[in-house]
Each structure stands twice: as C-alpha cells, then as structure tokens.
C-alpha cells in the first residue's frame, strides 16, 4: 500500500503536466478578457457612468413620478383593448411576412449550405436589414404608405427578417450533416436535400424562434405607435404627453397583460411542436 503511494508520488514528479497544452489558446482567452476590460473602461466616461450615485440620492423624484401611475383609469378600456388588438395584428403580419423571407435567407446565410460568394452578400444584406432600427424603417415607410399600421407592419417585416434569418441560419449551421448526406446519396436535388434533410431537423428551433420574435414584435409594435404607426402605442404616447397619468397607467397594465399572455401562449405552442 505504502509502496504504491510512494510510486505515484515519484511519477507525479516526473510528469510534465503542461505537456501538449495549447498555450496559444490560453493566451487568446486572457487577451479577450483584457480587451473586454479595456473596452469597459473606455466606455465609462462617454456613457456618463459616473452619475450612478443619483440613482440613490434622487430616487425620491422617481418615486414621485411613478406615484402618478398608481391610480389607473380604466373607463375607456374597450377602446384600449381594440387598439391593443391592432398592435397584435401589426406584429402578427410583420412577423409572418418576415417568416416567408427568413426561410430562404436563413438557408442562404448558413455556412454549411452555400459557397462564400452567396453567403457573404446574403449575410451583409441581413446585417443591413437588422442594423437599422424598426423606428427608422417605420419613418421611411410612413413617407411611402402614409401614417398608420401598414407602415408599422413593413418596418417590423424588414427589421425582423434581418434578425430571424440570422437566427434561422445559426440553427441550420448546427444540424447533423449525416442525414443530409443520406438524402443526397439517393440522387435528390439541392432543394430536396434542404426540404427532407435540413428543415425537419431545424423545424422545432425555427418555430420557437418565430414565436419568440412574435413576442418581441408585439413589444416593438407598441413602440412603433409612437411615430404614428397606429395601435396602442400611439394612444399611450398621446396620453403620456398630455400628462394623463391615470389613463397611461391603465394602458401600460393592458400592454403588460397582453405581453404576458402572448408569452404563455407561445410557450404552450412551443411545447406542442417539439
């Protein structure tokens, strides 16, 4: 017994624990950590992070402002509910239209599906769609189609296509290539490989991304109301601007309830598809 422990101790001394270790990787990890730290320090000033003590010294102001919202006025709740429904409908159409484009764009911006000369242009186009905020797209579409919900639908459509195509392509990049090869070896065409080999594998994830984006778009559609794209957001913005705190509070509560309900609904749907 003592013999063996003595032996292992000797062995331990002899073994170089760092043999075969990839130092480049370690240095990279340290480098990335340091770079992140430097970025945080550089961003401190411009972000006016030094104002953080105000959060505590002047918290009373916030409380006073918030107290205006403590007494919601639901006398017009039917009107709010109708406008909330409009917002949901804007989000539904916007998300649905972007789904139609996200399927082909998602495939075309997946590394394992297409050569680089298709991949790069598609990805850059999606970056462009995504980089410009819904609000900016909405302003652009208001010019073309006028104030109202349709401008909101188009804004969500374009921006969300950029995001959903990226999410979809990431799902496609993580598929198991072997079933696809199985399909290919039967003499199937490229499109058929995608339909039978790729889509069945990514479908649960895609559905879940779609539902998640729908939730997000319900919130975004609310904000789009602010620039005149209709729905509950427009009413909310008008009542806040008019200092109708009680009405604003009622609207906010309706928005929160709706978002919670969509979340619960999409959770159930997700369970159903996977």
């Amino acid at each position: 017994m003592t013999m063996t422990t003595a032996e292992t101790r000797d062995e331990r001394k002899a073994i170089d624990v760092n043999e075969g270790r990839d130092w480049a990787r370690t240095y990279w990890n340290i480098g990335i950590g340091v770079a992140l730290l430097v970025l945080l320090i550089l961003s401190w000033g411009p972000s006016e992070m030094e104002r953080w003590p105000f959060l505590f010294t002047d918290a009373g102001n916030m409380l006073e402002y918030a107290s205006g919202f403590t007494d919601p006025n639901f006398s017009q709740w039917e009107f709010y509910a109708r406008e909330m429904l409009v917002t949901l409908q804007i989000a539904l159409w916007g998300t649905f239209l972007s789904l139609i484009l996200s399927v082909p764009f998602g495939i075309l911006s997946a590394r394992n599906m297409v050569p680089w000369w298709i991949l790069q242009p598609t990805r850059r186009l999606m970056d462009f769609f995504r980089a410009i905020h819904e609000l900016v797209w909405a302003v652009l579409f208001v010019v073309a189609v006028g104030l109202g919900p349709f401008a909101g639908v188009m804004a969500l459509f374009i921006h969300n296509t950029g995001i959903m195509a990226k999410l979809f392509s990431e799902a496609v990049e993580s598929i198991d290539p072997r079933p696809v090869e199985g399909i290919r070896s039967t003499g199937a065409s490229r499109v058929q490989e995608v339909i039978y080999g790729v889509i069945p594998q990514v479908l649960p994830l895609w559905v879940s991304y779609f539902l998640y984006r729908f939730e997000t778009n319900v919130r975004s559609a609310t904000i789009l109301g602010v620039i005149g794209a209709g729905g509950i957001g427009q009413i909310l913005f008008e009542s806040i601007r008019g200092f109708y705190y009680a009405e604003s509070a009622a609207i906010l509560i309706i928005v929160v309830i709706t978002v919670v309900l969509t979340d619960l609904l999409s959770q159930q749907l997700r369970k159903f598809v996977t």
Partner: peptide, 13 residues
C-alpha cells in the same frame, strides 16, 4: 445506395 453506422435517417420524419 449508402448506409452507414449512424443510419443517416432523418430522426424527426
């Protein structure tokens, strides 16, 4: 025709 150790079927179909 090709078959392999991992069967290469599409699991969800």
């Amino acid at each position: 025709g090709v078959i392999s150790q991992q069967f290469n079927l599409v699991n969800r179909l």
